[in-house]
Amino acid sequence: MTTPSWLTVTRGNAPLLVSLPHTGIDLVDIEPQLTSRWLGQRDCDWWIDRLYDFAAGLGATVVHTAISRTVIDVNRDPSGVSLYPGQTTTGLCPTETFDGDPLYRVGEEPTPADIDRRRQTYFEPYHAALAAELKRLRALHPKVVLYDCHSIRSVIPRLFDGELPVFNFGTNDGKSADPALQKLVTDIIAGGGKSWVVNGRFKGGWITRHYGNPADGVHALQMELSNRGYMREPIGPVGPDNWPVPYDPDFAAPMRKTLTNILETALGWART
Protein backbone atom coordinates (compact mmCIF):
# COMPACT_ATOMS: atom_id res chain seq x y z
CA MET A 1 0.00 0.00 0.00
CA THR A 2 1.42 3.38 -1.04
CA THR A 3 2.00 5.90 1.76
CA PRO A 4 0.17 9.19 1.06
CA SER A 5 2.41 12.21 0.48
CA TRP A 6 1.07 13.94 3.60
CA LEU A 7 1.94 11.00 5.87
CA THR A 8 5.54 10.53 6.99
CA VAL A 9 6.69 7.37 8.77
CA THR A 10 10.32 7.34 9.91
CA ARG A 11 11.09 3.81 11.08
CA GLY A 12 13.40 2.95 13.93
CA ASN A 13 13.82 -0.27 15.86
CA ALA A 14 13.87 1.08 19.43
CA PRO A 15 10.79 0.33 21.60
CA LEU A 16 9.44 3.88 21.16
CA LEU A 17 6.87 5.31 18.75
CA VAL A 18 6.50 9.10 18.64
CA SER A 19 3.20 10.40 17.27
CA LEU A 20 2.84 13.92 15.79
CA PRO A 21 -0.89 14.32 15.08
CA HIS A 22 -1.37 18.10 15.26
CA THR A 23 1.66 19.80 13.70
CA GLY A 24 0.21 19.86 10.17
CA ILE A 25 -1.02 23.06 8.52
CA ASP A 26 -2.13 21.68 5.14
CA LEU A 27 -5.78 22.66 4.58
CA VAL A 28 -5.97 20.67 1.31
CA ASP A 29 -9.23 21.40 -0.52
CA ILE A 30 -11.25 23.01 2.30
CA GLU A 31 -9.62 26.46 2.39
CA PRO A 32 -12.32 28.11 0.21
CA GLN A 33 -14.92 27.06 2.80
CA LEU A 34 -13.08 28.66 5.71
CA THR A 35 -13.51 32.12 7.19
CA SER A 36 -9.74 32.59 6.94
CA ARG A 37 -6.58 30.59 6.33
CA TRP A 38 -5.04 31.95 9.52
CA LEU A 39 -7.93 30.72 11.69
CA GLY A 40 -7.72 27.36 9.95
CA GLN A 41 -4.10 27.03 11.05
CA ARG A 42 -4.08 28.91 14.37
CA ASP A 43 -4.66 25.90 16.63
CA CYS A 44 -1.76 23.93 15.17
CA ASP A 45 0.67 22.47 17.73
CA TRP A 46 3.25 24.94 16.50
CA TRP A 47 6.85 23.75 16.04
CA ILE A 48 6.35 20.51 17.97
CA ASP A 49 7.84 18.56 15.06
CA ARG A 50 10.98 20.70 15.32
CA LEU A 51 11.06 20.47 19.11
CA TYR A 52 11.10 16.67 18.95
CA ASP A 53 13.25 16.30 15.84
CA PHE A 54 15.86 14.51 17.95
CA ALA A 55 13.55 11.51 18.48
CA ALA A 56 14.54 9.61 15.34
CA GLY A 57 18.18 9.86 16.44
CA LEU A 58 17.24 7.85 19.53
CA GLY A 59 16.01 5.03 17.29
CA ALA A 60 12.36 5.96 17.71
CA THR A 61 9.75 5.47 15.00
CA VAL A 62 8.05 8.78 14.17
CA VAL A 63 4.60 9.07 12.57
CA HIS A 64 3.61 12.54 11.33
CA THR A 65 0.68 13.97 9.38
CA ALA A 66 0.96 17.23 7.44
CA ILE A 67 -2.84 17.62 7.42
CA SER A 68 -4.27 20.36 9.64
CA ARG A 69 -6.47 19.35 12.56
CA THR A 70 -9.05 21.73 11.02
CA VAL A 71 -9.50 19.22 8.18
CA ILE A 72 -9.79 16.30 10.60
CA ASP A 73 -8.46 15.72 14.09
CA VAL A 74 -6.76 12.32 14.20
CA ASN A 75 -6.71 12.49 18.02
CA ARG A 76 -10.50 12.40 18.40
CA ASP A 77 -12.89 9.47 18.67
CA PRO A 78 -13.83 8.64 15.06
CA SER A 79 -17.44 8.10 16.16
CA GLY A 80 -17.62 11.76 17.16
CA VAL A 81 -18.16 11.03 20.87
CA SER A 82 -16.56 13.66 23.15
CA LEU A 83 -13.43 12.58 24.99
CA TYR A 84 -14.14 15.15 27.71
CA PRO A 85 -17.89 15.00 28.47
CA GLY A 86 -19.16 18.15 30.10
CA GLN A 87 -16.11 20.19 29.04
CA THR A 88 -15.67 22.39 26.01
CA THR A 89 -13.58 20.69 23.35
CA THR A 90 -13.28 20.46 19.57
CA GLY A 91 -14.60 17.54 17.55
CA LEU A 92 -13.47 15.19 14.82
CA CYS A 93 -13.98 17.86 12.14
CA PRO A 94 -14.08 21.04 14.21
CA THR A 95 -16.31 23.91 13.17
CA GLU A 96 -14.91 26.32 15.77
CA THR A 97 -11.44 27.27 16.94
CA PHE A 98 -10.31 26.76 20.53
CA ASP A 99 -11.49 30.31 21.23
CA GLY A 100 -14.92 29.69 19.71
CA ASP A 101 -14.42 31.53 16.42
CA PRO A 102 -16.35 29.99 13.51
CA LEU A 103 -14.01 28.20 11.12
CA TYR A 104 -16.43 27.95 8.20
CA ARG A 105 -18.37 30.44 6.15
CA VAL A 106 -22.11 30.24 6.80
CA GLY A 107 -23.53 27.21 4.99
CA GLU A 108 -20.08 25.79 4.21
CA GLU A 109 -19.72 23.58 7.30
CA PRO A 110 -18.75 19.93 6.67
CA THR A 111 -21.65 17.59 5.98
CA PRO A 112 -21.80 14.00 7.26
CA ALA A 113 -20.60 12.90 3.81
CA ASP A 114 -17.66 15.35 4.03
CA ILE A 115 -16.71 14.02 7.46
CA ASP A 116 -16.89 10.43 6.24
CA ARG A 117 -14.67 11.25 3.25
CA ARG A 118 -12.10 12.98 5.45
CA ARG A 119 -12.16 10.06 7.88
CA GLN A 120 -11.39 7.60 5.10
CA THR A 121 -8.84 9.83 3.37
CA TYR A 122 -6.83 11.19 6.32
CA PHE A 123 -7.86 9.66 9.65
CA GLU A 124 -7.75 5.99 8.72
CA PRO A 125 -4.31 6.02 7.01
CA TYR A 126 -2.76 7.77 10.02
CA HIS A 127 -4.14 5.17 12.39
CA ALA A 128 -3.29 2.32 10.05
CA ALA A 129 0.32 3.55 10.21
CA LEU A 130 0.27 3.76 14.02
CA ALA A 131 -1.22 0.29 14.34
CA ALA A 132 1.22 -1.24 11.85
CA GLU A 133 4.27 0.33 13.51
CA LEU A 134 3.15 -0.71 16.98
CA LYS A 135 2.67 -4.28 15.72
CA ARG A 136 6.13 -4.24 14.12
CA LEU A 137 7.79 -2.91 17.26
CA ARG A 138 5.94 -5.33 19.53
CA ALA A 139 7.33 -8.17 17.43
CA LEU A 140 10.80 -6.86 18.36
CA HIS A 141 10.22 -5.93 22.00
CA PRO A 142 8.11 -7.23 24.91
CA LYS A 143 6.96 -3.69 25.66
CA VAL A 144 6.74 -0.49 23.63
CA VAL A 145 6.13 3.15 24.59
CA LEU A 146 3.80 5.25 22.44
CA TYR A 147 4.52 8.92 23.11
CA ASP A 148 1.94 11.38 21.71
CA CYS A 149 3.25 14.96 21.30
CA HIS A 150 1.07 18.04 21.74
CA SER A 151 1.12 21.73 22.63
CA ILE A 152 -1.38 24.51 23.18
CA ARG A 153 -1.49 28.21 24.04
CA SER A 154 -1.12 28.86 27.74
CA VAL A 155 -4.31 30.90 28.20
CA ILE A 156 -7.57 29.91 26.47
CA PRO A 157 -10.48 30.78 28.81
CA ARG A 158 -12.99 28.80 26.75
CA LEU A 159 -11.08 25.57 27.38
CA PHE A 160 -9.60 25.99 30.87
CA ASP A 161 -9.32 28.42 33.76
CA GLY A 162 -6.26 30.56 34.29
CA GLU A 163 -2.85 29.69 32.94
CA LEU A 164 -2.22 26.08 31.98
CA PRO A 165 0.81 24.34 33.57
CA VAL A 166 3.84 24.04 31.30
CA PHE A 167 3.78 20.24 31.43
CA ASN A 168 0.43 18.45 31.11
CA PHE A 169 1.21 14.75 31.27
CA GLY A 170 -1.54 12.20 30.67
CA THR A 171 -2.01 8.45 30.93
CA ASN A 172 -5.82 8.35 30.83
CA ASP A 173 -5.95 8.32 34.64
CA GLY A 174 -3.31 5.60 34.80
CA LYS A 175 -5.07 3.21 32.41
CA SER A 176 -2.79 3.60 29.38
CA ALA A 177 0.65 3.00 30.92
CA ASP A 178 2.44 1.14 33.68
CA PRO A 179 2.53 3.11 36.98
CA ALA A 180 6.32 2.73 37.11
CA LEU A 181 6.70 4.48 33.74
CA GLN A 182 4.27 7.20 34.77
CA LYS A 183 6.30 7.83 37.93
CA LEU A 184 9.59 8.05 36.05
CA VAL A 185 8.23 10.73 33.72
CA THR A 186 6.45 12.54 36.54
CA ASP A 187 9.68 12.71 38.55
CA ILE A 188 11.45 14.37 35.61
CA ILE A 189 8.84 17.09 35.09
CA ALA A 190 8.41 17.60 38.83
CA GLY A 191 12.12 18.21 39.22
CA GLY A 192 12.45 20.66 36.36
CA GLY A 193 11.28 23.82 38.11
CA LYS A 194 8.32 24.37 35.75
CA SER A 195 4.62 24.00 36.56
CA TRP A 196 3.17 20.57 35.85
CA VAL A 197 0.16 18.32 36.33
CA VAL A 198 -0.56 14.63 35.70
CA ASN A 199 -3.96 13.59 34.31
CA GLY A 200 -5.36 17.08 34.66
CA ARG A 201 -7.30 18.96 31.96
CA PHE A 202 -5.52 16.98 29.22
CA LYS A 203 -5.22 13.36 30.30
CA GLY A 204 -4.89 11.83 26.86
CA GLY A 205 -6.87 11.91 23.63
CA TRP A 206 -8.03 9.14 21.33
CA ILE A 207 -4.50 7.99 20.49
CA THR A 208 -3.51 7.51 24.13
CA ARG A 209 -6.81 5.89 25.09
CA HIS A 210 -7.20 3.68 22.03
CA TYR A 211 -3.69 2.23 21.84
CA GLY A 212 -2.58 2.27 25.45
CA ASN A 213 -2.85 -1.35 26.62
CA PRO A 214 -0.27 -2.19 29.28
CA ALA A 215 -1.47 -5.78 29.48
CA ASP A 216 -0.51 -6.19 25.82
CA GLY A 217 2.81 -4.41 26.17
CA VAL A 218 1.83 -1.00 24.73
CA HIS A 219 2.24 1.91 27.15
CA ALA A 220 0.80 5.20 25.85
CA LEU A 221 1.73 8.65 27.15
CA GLN A 222 0.45 12.07 26.10
CA MET A 223 2.49 15.20 26.72
CA GLU A 224 0.65 18.49 26.22
CA LEU A 225 3.07 21.41 26.54
CA SER A 226 2.04 24.99 27.08
CA ASN A 227 3.58 27.00 24.27
CA ARG A 228 5.41 29.32 26.66
CA GLY A 229 7.61 26.40 27.68
CA TYR A 230 9.46 26.47 24.35
CA MET A 231 8.22 29.59 22.48
CA ARG A 232 8.22 33.32 23.17
CA GLU A 233 4.45 33.09 23.45
CA PRO A 234 2.33 36.25 23.71
CA ILE A 235 0.02 35.49 26.62
CA GLY A 236 -3.62 36.23 25.89
CA PRO A 237 -5.50 36.83 22.63
CA VAL A 238 -3.43 36.42 19.47
CA GLY A 239 -3.78 37.73 15.93
CA PRO A 240 -2.16 37.28 12.53
CA ASP A 241 0.42 39.91 13.44
CA ASN A 242 1.82 38.00 16.44
CA TRP A 243 0.92 34.31 15.99
CA PRO A 244 2.64 32.02 15.49
CA VAL A 245 5.95 33.38 16.68
CA PRO A 246 9.04 32.01 14.87
CA TYR A 247 10.77 28.95 16.25
CA ASP A 248 13.80 29.97 18.31
CA PRO A 249 16.18 27.00 18.86
CA ASP A 250 18.02 28.77 21.66
CA PHE A 251 14.83 29.54 23.54
CA ALA A 252 13.58 25.97 23.02
CA ALA A 253 16.87 24.35 24.09
CA PRO A 254 16.04 23.87 27.80
CA MET A 255 12.72 22.23 26.90
CA ARG A 256 14.43 19.97 24.36
CA LYS A 257 16.86 18.89 27.06
CA THR A 258 14.01 17.90 29.37
CA LEU A 259 12.12 16.13 26.60
CA THR A 260 15.25 14.25 25.57
CA ASN A 261 15.59 13.09 29.17
CA ILE A 262 11.96 11.95 29.16
CA LEU A 263 12.27 9.93 25.94
CA GLU A 264 15.61 8.42 26.93
CA THR A 265 14.15 7.46 30.30
CA ALA A 266 11.09 5.91 28.67
CA LEU A 267 13.38 3.96 26.33
CA GLY A 268 15.49 2.74 29.23
CA TRP A 269 12.37 1.57 31.04
CA ALA A 270 11.03 -0.19 27.94
CA ARG A 271 14.32 -2.05 27.46
CA THR A 272 14.41 -3.45 31.00
Rank of each mutant, 00 (worst) to 15 (best):
Y104W: 07
Y104A: 07
R105T: 10
R105K: 14
V106E: 14
V106N: 11
V106G: 07
G107C: 05
G107K: 02
G107Q: 02
G107A: 08
G107W: 00
G107E: 02
G107H: 02
E108C: 14
E108N: 12
E108Q: 15
E108M: 15
E108T: 09
E108Y: 12
E109H: 10
E109N: 09
E109D: 13
P110M: 04
T111L: 02
T111Q: 06
T111K: 02
T111I: 00
P112V: 00
P112A: 01
A113E: 13
A113W: 00
A113L: 06
D114L: 01
I115H: 01
I115P: 03
I115Q: 07
D116F: 00
D116K: 00
R117E: 09
R117W: 00
R117G: 03
R117V: 01
R118W: 07
R118M: 09
R118T: 04
R118S: 05
R119M: 11
R119T: 14
R119I: 13
Q120Y: 05
Q120T: 09
T121E: 13
Y122Q: 00
Y122P: 04
F123H: 12
F123Y: 15
F123D: 05
E124S: 11
E124L: 14
E124R: 13
E124F: 08
P125C: 12
P125K: 07
P125E: 06
H127L: 12
H127E: 10
H127K: 10
A128F: 09
A128C: 13
A129K: 06
A129V: 09
L130V: 15
L130E: 07
L130A: 07
A131E: 15
A131H: 12
A131D: 13
A132R: 15
A132V: 08
A132C: 10
A132M: 12
A132H: 14
A132G: 13
E133N: 06
E133Y: 11
L134S: 03
K135H: 13
K135T: 15
K135C: 06
R136Y: 12
R136H: 08
L137I: 05
L137C: 02
R138I: 00
R138N: 02
R138S: 11
